[in-house]
Amino acid sequence: MRLAQCFAIENDLIHADAIEASEFPDLSARYHVYAVPRTVINGEGFIEGSLPEDFFLDAVLKAVSPETQDGEAL
């Protein structure tokens, strides 16, 4: 959660919520949270576990940039 918060501080377009999975079982079920931490990005993308700053940021940016996914030419 620390990194997500830091990202939110850097850019106003980024919002970060920490959610206690056990207190919100319906939401956790909807997002298939079986292990924590699990980060849900714009309700669609996922990141499992804790990652170092560079990897977490790249994973977040990749999740919101569909044009760079699916092996499209860079």
Binding site: M1, A4, Q5, C6, F7, A8, I9, E10, N11, L13, I14, H15, A16, D17, A18, I19, E20, A21, S22, S28, Y31, V33, V36, P37, R38, T39, V40, I41, N42, G43, E53, D54, L57, V60, L61, V64
Partner: peptide, 26 residues
């Protein structure tokens, strides 16, 4: 944020809303 300069640069370039929901346990 205390983030690295490279991270700050990448984040400054974000132009679309990003909602991060981090599921945790106590």
């Amino acid at each position: 944020s205390g983030l690295k300069p490279e991270s700050r640069e990448k984040l400054a370039a974000v132009t679309q809303p990003i909602h991060l929901e981090v599921f945790v346990t106590p």
